[in-house]
Design a protein around this nucleic acid. Sequence first.
DNA 1: CACAATCATACCAATGAAATACCACTTTGG
DNA 2: CCAAAGTGGTATTTCATTGGTATGATTGTG
Lengths: 250, 250
Amino acid sequence: MQTTLYGEYRKLDRGGEAQRSLAYLRLRRAIQNTIESGAFPPGQALPSERDLAKKLALSRVTVRKAIGGLVEDGLLTQRHGAGTFVAERIVKSFSRLTGFTDDLRARGLKPRVKFLERGVGEVTPEEAMALNLSPGADVIRLRRLRFADDKPLAVESTAVPATVIADPNAVKLSLYDALEEIGCRPTRALQRLRAVALGADEAKLLDCDAGSPALAIERRAFLDDGRVVEFTTSLYRGDAYDFVAELHGD
Amino acid sequence: MQTTLYGEYRKLDRGGEAQRSLAYLRLRRAIQNTIESGAFPPGQALPSERDLAKKLALSRVTVRKAIGGLVEDGLLTQRHGAGTFVAERIVKSFSRLTGFTDDLRARGLKPRVKFLERGVGEVTPEEAMALNLSPGADVIRLRRLRFADDKPLAVESTAVPATVIADPNAVKLSLYDALEEIGCRPTRALQRLRAVALGADEAKLLDCDAGSPALAIERRAFLDDGRVVEFTTSLYRGDAYDFVAELHGD
DNA sequence: CACAATCATACCAATGAAATACCACTTTGG
DNA sequence: CCAAAGTGGTATTTCATTGGTATGATTGTG
């Protein structure tokens, strides 16, 4: 038996004395239970606020209060004029080479970036190894916090050889746009992906708890001639991001 | 199982008020399902936008919106004046499709497996969706604990249609060996990766703490004709397994 | 009474979708 | 070779429905 939203609400409705609780909290739990039971798959549209209010004999304000909490929690997404939807995880192709910005734009999300650091410096030994540079060479460094629709999704630390891009301020939103402008869009990349626990600092940046799972990705991007143009390490919130990869045999 | 586009759309269509969803999203999903089922081979032309609109009683704008999304995702290609086509697989991925056993052997580690469960049962709704089976069909289920050099690395839950392998005991160590013996080695697979926190049970199996990060991987493996032969969900210890992929642009 | 939750209502802004028309390109057939 | 037919590309208008927001009345409770 599939759980229905209305049934779930009525279940929470009765039991008045022992478990008295505010209407919008009851409704909120009802919606959450229904989603978690799988009756509303991700991407599914909820009934409209007006419908819900009418069917449950509540005012629209109350319904909105219930929905609002779940939107805050990231369980629901609302689109003005369209409706309320069960949130979908963001899916990124692991085998196609796209920058973060292009990727989000393609999904109709609003990418935003906040620069935590932007400067020039000497390569660290690790960067020298990854970028194939001699010790002492210069790189530009970007440390960026990535948002989708104003929710933090990832922290990225990027190093680009100063011989490729000399001015760190040339990178506005998308590194790949900046690279394309100077004819250096990479055509190949190696990625390494693993699961890690977030440290306290990173957790704070990403607005979740320390220790929560995240995807750690290291990427080296190459030009046709084999030069490395980018070395990036990223941390993606585990609860918001999926990667898909298509594999081929033989 | 072959699916038709119109059938697929109507399947998503019914369910009326309980399962409301926007028309262009329904159509989009329908087209995607149809392509992934293998009914439309790469290079195949779709019906024209006007035909689709007429047959499905939608406006052409709506049809275009559905198609547009899939073109953005690279699943379809449109040629002005010619038509809409299922995209050829341009990207030759270097990611090789290998089972866990082959993978570890290649790394010079000693694979070992312990069966936690091995049996036959009816498909769950989730499996039915993933394997493209009808509800009520049988699958064989394997739940395996994977070791490398006697250290636990992953738990894997696998479902294979009983029409492909009827006897669960036919699988000794490697599922892919067993599939190869009967000439059903998959040639393509889709994987989904994300980071999750381990539950108490899984943590115990993998000999680490509850809540520690892990890679959750869902894999659907396909034959040439589009049939799904395997649906596996795995949990890899985050501190012990890396995933490496080579990406290609353009 | 004071206060907060809730209801009722009205209006605004954004989106989905339909209907329609016209353009530009490709394919096809005479 | 050329014209007709069919294809995607684009734009416009119209309408219903949806979420976004503000305001004031009503209810229940301490």
